[in-house]
Design a protein around this nucleic acid. Structure first.
Lengths: 195, 195
DNA sequence: GAATGTGATATATAATCCTATATCGACGTA
DNA sequence: TACGTCGATATAGGATTATATATCACATTC
């Protein structure tokens, strides 16, 4: 209906998905219903202010009013510390999905130097704080990897390409690693044992 | 009803009043009705997100989502550049009210060195950016001036006191004058001619 | 297949939001 | 003082819309 809230609502969805929380999980945290969240994200509905605040806070965001003149400065801070669309770290479901994909690829193409390079780069990138452009590239590479995994005739050359680009991305953001101490997972500790 | 939006809504009202815009004027700018704005400000109603955005933007504010960790840094910027409660500049109705008060005082007490000092200080202060404490002092002095104007037996000594304190405040914020070039009014250009 | 978890879809209820009117104070005039 | 007007905010009434309950379709895993 209205286009004014577009950006804010899009941001909510992005952060939710990036943090790997489902609409139901968010529903439990906020008290809103999953149906409601679905309609809000799908622009079928404009939330009330209180619903919006509730959603934001559950996603570790705080809605504030900023004088327009200061918007560039404030956005600068936010982008510098953690890109708004680049909240890759702390992902839970995404991590699992990534692990699944890697397993599949390894099954199909077998281990290789490229595969090892991909694993290493991803492990480091999971803990890095990426800028917007970098996060975009990261996601595109993950998509490529997923496509490769689902492909009928997986290609070793595209795997090599992905490996190169991921390593490049890793090097780009190597100086900007988050201090989060936890290893969280080892890219291998899935319950089943097909390694 | 909900307490979550308390702060944001209070901020809207503060900025509106500080900027000297009436609910009706804001209504024309936003497309919302004056009734609606009244209910929102009086907490009889929780606005929809789009209504909230509309109001904020009409008041030169932008609602954004900030990661909670960055809130202190962002608030730091905002407070440093322009206190949220200290948006005195660009006042219109407040200016008129001030002009009225000054005229009355001059009628009652007659022109004097103190009166001239007050006029001069106020003219400068209208264009200054004040910190929170300074803005508070400023408003208290205006209240004193208004009380003096309404008093049965106006006192020359309190006028002198106000003049001194206003000038002090003026000196305190002299280095921090906004670059707004327009004079806007001359503290004297009311339509009628009783000067 | 069953089971689980994902987001999306109807419908009743409760709320927002608008139209119109009321209240209150300040100001001017007779 | 009393009356009228003006500008401000606050208050009733119905149209429209958000929200909750319940259910749905779809994908993935066992």
């Amino acid at each position: 209906m209205t286009y004014k809230s577009e950006h804010l609502l899009a941001q909510l969805r992005e952060v939710r998905e990036a943090s790997g929380t489902s609409q139901r999980a968010l529903s439990e945290r906020t008290g809103l219903t999953q149906s409601h969240i679905s309609q809000i994200e799908g622009r079928k509905l404009e939330p009330g202010l209180s619903s919006f605040i509730e959603l934001a806070r559950a996603l570790d965001l705080e809605p504030i009013l900023v004088p327009k003149k200061l918007i560039p400065a404030v956005l600068g801070i936010i982008r510098a510390q953690a890109g708004p669309d680049a909240m890759i770290r702390d992902g839970r479901t995404i991590d699992k999905k990534l692990i699944r994909i890697l397993k599949r690829v390894r099954q199909k193409l077998g281990g290789s130097a490229d595969f090892d390079r991909i694993e290493g780069s991803l492990e480091l990138l999971q803990h890095a704080r990426l800028g917007v452009a970098e996060a975009d590239a990261y996601h595109r590479l993950l998509d490529n990897l997923e496509a490769l995994e689902k492909s009928d005739q997986p290609d070793g050359r595209t795997l090599h390409d992905i490996a190169i680009k991921l390593q490049h991305l890793r090097n780009m953001s190597a100086h900007n690693v988050s201090p989060s101490p936890r290893a969280a997972y080892a890219l291998d500790d899935e319950d089943d044992s097909d390694a």
